Simulated scan of single mutants.
Amino acid sequence: MTKTILLTAGGTGGHLFPAEALATELVRRGWTVDLATDERADKYGARFPARDVHIIASETLRSRSPLALLRTLLSLARGTLQAFGVIRRIRPAVVVGFGGYPTFPPMMAARLARVPSILHEANAVMGRANRMLARGVDAVATSVPIAGLDAGLAAKVRETGNPVRPMVIEAARLAYPPLDGAGPFHLLVFGGSQGARFFSELMPEALALMPADKRARLRLVQQCRPEDLDRVRKQLETLGVHAELAAFFTDLPMRLAGAHLILCRSGASSVSELAVIGRPSILVPLPHALDQDQSANARVLEAVGGAWPIDQKNLTPQALADRLGSLMDDPETLAAAARAAAGQGKADAVARLADLVEQVAAQSKT
């Protein structure tokens, strides 16, 4: 049996991070791993443990106009031919896709080349690209149960959890930080791997509405887009808020572990890391998503008492100021939410998914 696995993922952190976790585990087990992705991986995949990274052409359907549809189809067709050539050259035992349109060409190429394949669905609802690909794969790995699948597709599903990076497992060993009603309060704010302007605009306005004594207690760590950093920094300095701002935190899992409360989007990787590390959160699903996947993800933690989802349209500066103020005065509620979130964590997800990859590889040779 060939000892090569081809992983394919969109070039954002939400797709690459679980793929990176699986790659690390497969390499530990003696496999060689290649990655097929798009050009965005330069920022988030620098430490990806792959022998080779193959940049594959792809395109998201951005509108329903005939010209846009043709452009998308041509790009996907070109990418499929590129991926087919990669597969013929490296001869992987299994191709594993982690979602996003950049996975479409390699997964289609695997089907054309009759190479076994696995899709991983990180969200609580199946994304459009994965729905189109699911019927042609050997197995579908999910992070949480997904309702509404037909019998044929449900028979392929294996609930493995969403793999998290080794640094997340390391951070999960740290206990929830002690908190009293007068000491420093560590608040982490981030908007997913590409940031969120909404939080950069919201936070200074919300903190301005809080009492000065509560602002003095805050130890804020916030991710901002590069173009927003100077403006937000000046606003927070004017308010007297102790803040550390950056466009991207490479040590985000440790930042999560050190926080008393997190304010963030509810992408699949963020929700999985919150659960594995066990930290309470205010979750703000990305609005206008066609699949409403982030809303579904947030409900998973809300159902067990580990998070407080708030729709973006309802999260006014005053609403956030009030919620932060009340939680800062309620250490017991925060600690209970941390325990509840941890109860949903699947720290062994990467081992479960690696086991599934090896099972599919072995079955293909029997």
Rank of each mutant, 00 (worst) to 15 (best):
K3G: 15
A9V: 08
H15L: 01
E20Y: 12
R29W: 04
W31Q: 05
A36V: 04
A46M: 07
R47H: 09
A57N: 10
S58P: 10
S65C: 11
A68S: 11
L70Y: 15
L73T: 10
L76P: 03
R78H: 00
A83Q: 01
P92N: 00
G100L: 05
A109T: 06
A113I: 05
L119T: 12
N123T: 07
V125M: 05
M126I: 14
R135I: 15
V137M: 12
A139D: 11
V144S: 02
A151P: 04
G152A: 11
E159V: 11
P163H: 10
A171W: 04
D180W: 04
M210F: 05
M210W: 02
A212F: 06
D213P: 11
Q223Y: 04
E227Y: 14
D230E: 15
D230S: 15
H242S: 15
P253S: 09
A257L: 06
I262R: 00
R265P: 04
G267I: 05
S270M: 11
A275W: 02
A275H: 06
S281R: 02
S295Y: 03
G305T: 10
W308A: 15
I310P: 01
Q318K: 12
D329K: 11
D329R: 13
L334D: 00
A336N: 00
G345I: 06
K346G: 00
D348Q: 12
A349T: 09
A349G: 03
A351I: 13
A362C: 10
T366F: 10
